[in-house]
Nucleic acid binder design. Structure first.
Length: 548
RNA sequence: GCGCCCGUAGCUCAACUGGAUAGAGCAACUGCCUUCUAAGCAGUAGGUUACAGGUUCGAGUCCUGUCGGGCGUACCA
């Protein structure tokens, strides 16, 4: 159902008639040329082999092309061009046959075996429960969830995990902030602590406590009760927000459990056995300088509290102990520095560091009134994901975060996102899908039950029909590439091209009013296109409406 | 200072990971609704891919340097 394997096998066969095998040659690629006039597919095999074969690329290409031409049932055209590209064009009969196979398996079309049988754990969001999720967290959540969907389509079993910490200074500060608001609301003289949380939600939590406990909590010594209440409420809110975005976590991993089960101290011990731990100035150090880093790293502070590095290492060991073949972390650019330390630690502990991969994304630059807007959870001058979804909905929000390559900064113009509902690219895709459904409704009315048996694939012969078909065949390749490179935006780029090809077909080839066979066959092609669009959109977590 | 990421049309971004004449969407301009959804289509215009070298059949993509931006560079989280 993907065209590349057809060509690939043909090349292997051609090589065998020349007494060669792939093993003798460097890796080569098969691609769809940018310019469709060059052919359906193209390979650089002759160019990359020139050195080994001690022969000019054109000469190799010519021989290979001859061998390929003998496979008459496959190709209508085999040519050599430019510096030695071999370009081929498939016979219509081949495309018709592939399309039939696709149509028979449309619902699962796109699924592949790139990660077949792998157990993969994705860690993402992982915001500590100190406040509502903001626009900044959105990119993380959507990237993580979409990667999970991609891996699943590539045959993997995926666990989505949220790693958080309900201990530590920020959480204490949160508790104290709630405590202060609680006292204030009961008319007491209390002040928000220095550096406390100023958001309105703190007051809401305090109010809930008053509803439940009245004034009884004024006697509380510490901030513990308040912290727990805040944590519970905020985590519930976060889950609800994620739910709205179609993000469902499989597990929440509390960093604190690594303290309770002594996992972190075991890590220190194991590292110590390798002679990589020492004490200095009252702190415990990891001798990362022996492992290629410039400086050593503190594992346990003078105060006795571990730094973030230590539980990070213990956490990743825990994941590998749970039997995952691949651990993927979704990180903002600001967290990148912890990653090499974790890998070093994992390596020393005797695990395979290649099982840990990171998707690093650049920051979201929020633009408000044409100017960059600096956000801080603590200062409460943030825009929450909920507020954003109130304005533009979940589909647009997800699509927006996925549109750009993770490695580039994402400019999020709030005003534009709010106002531009009809200019948003997501609607182009949804519109194409809705349009197809509309035509299909009409076609089905006309053809009734007979529509399937009327289909005659050979009746597809228009240029627009062929280019649409060829585009569809690439869907599995795109999913695999997007998953491997961890770049979900490739799916969007592909879907936009597909929708564009469909629209071209739609304007060139009428469905209604044609001969019954043509009508049925074109309707089937449109139907298959709709399914590909729907499959792709579902990977992105975006709906495919039947009407707009 | 050092490390990582980025620099492509006026703006926001692609470019199948080294391939052929660098492409879309906004914005601008010109056409197209008595025919399956005009949230659409066809077309025009817009570029020394920040700059300078290098590697090779071939560079936006790889290596070096320079300039500019972001993020790090904590016994913060």
């Amino acid at each position: 159902m993907s065209l590349k394997p057809l060509f690939h096998n043909a090349i292997k066969h051609a090589l065998s008639t020349m007494d060669l095998s792939e093993g003798d040659l460097p890796n080569y690629t098969i691609e769809a040329p940018k310019d469709p006039s060059h052919g359906d597919l193209s390979t650089n095999i002759a160019m990359v082999s020139a050195k080994v074969a001690k022969e000019a690329p054109q000469s190799i290409a010519a021989k290979l092309a001859d061998a390929l031409r003998t496979q008459e049932d496959l190709f209508s055209e085999v040519g050599v061009a430019g510096p030695g590209f071999i370009n081929i064009r498939f016979k219509p009969s081949v495309l018709h046959k592939e399309l039939k196979t696709l149509a028979d398996n449309a619902e699962t079309f796109g699924r592949n075996q790139a990660f077949d049988g792998k157990k993969i754990i994705l860690e993402f969001v992982s915001a500590n429960p100190t406040g509502p999720l903001t626009v900044g967290h959105g990119r993380n959540a959507v990237l993580g969830d979409t990667m999970a969907r991609l891996y699943e389509w590539c045959g993997a079993t995926v666990t989505r995990e949220y790693y958080f910490n309900n201990a530590g200074r920020q959480m204490r500060m949160l508790g104290e902030s709630v405590k202060a608001r609680y006292a204030q609301q009961l008319g007491q003289d209390a002040e928000l602590p220095e550096g406390g949380y100023e958001g309105e939600y703190i007051g809401d939590i305090a109010a809930t406590l008053i509803d439940g406990h009245g004034e009884s909590l004024l006697q509380e010594e510490g901030e513990g009760v308040f912290k727990e209440a805040a944590e519970k409420t905020i985590l519930e809110d976060i889950t609800r927000t994620l739910d709205r975005m179609q993000v469902k976590m499989d597990s929440f991993f509390n960093e604190h459990s690594l303290y309770e089960n002594k996992a972190i101290y075991d890590v220190v011990e194991k590292l110590n056995e390798k002679g990589l731990v020492y004490q200095k100035d009252g702190a415990v150090w990891f001798s990362t300088s022996q492992l290629g880093k410039e400086k050593d790293t503190v594992l346990i502070k003078k105060s006795g509290e571990p730094t973030y590095r230590l539980p990070d290492i213990a956490y990743h060991r825990d994941k590998l102990d749970r039997g995952f073949d691949l651990c993927v972390d979704i990180f903002g650019a600001d967290h990148i520095d912890t990653y090499p330390d974790v890998l070093r630690g994992i390596d020393v502990l005797g695990y395979d560091p290649e099982k840990i991969e990171v998707l690093v994304y650049q920051f979201v630059t929020l633009v408000k009134d044409g100017k960059p807007y600096k956000m801080s959870t603590r200062k409460a001058n943030f825009i929450t994901l909920d507020e954003l979804m109130d304005e533009v909905g979940s589909d647009v929000t997800r699509f927006f975060f996925l549109m750009r390559a993770p490695s580039t900064h994402l400019e999020f113009d709030v005003a534009q996102a709010k106002e531009a509902s009809d200019k948003n690219p997501v609607f182009y895709l949804q519109y194409a899908h809705a349009r197809i459904q509309s035509v299909l409704r009409k076609a089905n009315e006309e053809l009734g039950d007979k529509s399937t048996e009327l289909v005659q694939w050979t009746s597809l012969e228009h240029e627009a029909e062929f280019s649409l078909m060829k585009k569809l065949f690439f869907f599995p390749d795109v999913i695999e590439t997007a998953a491997r490179s961890k770049e979900p935006h490739k799916v969007i780029t592909y879907l936009q091209e597909t929708a564009q090809e469909f629209t071209h077909f739609y304007h060139e080839c009428r469905i209604m009013g044609e001969e019954p066979e043509v009508m049925a066959t074109r309707a089937k092609l449109a139907d298959v296109t709709a399914t590909v669009l729907k499959n792709g959109l579902s990977l992105l977590g975006v709906t495919a409406p039947n009407k707009m």
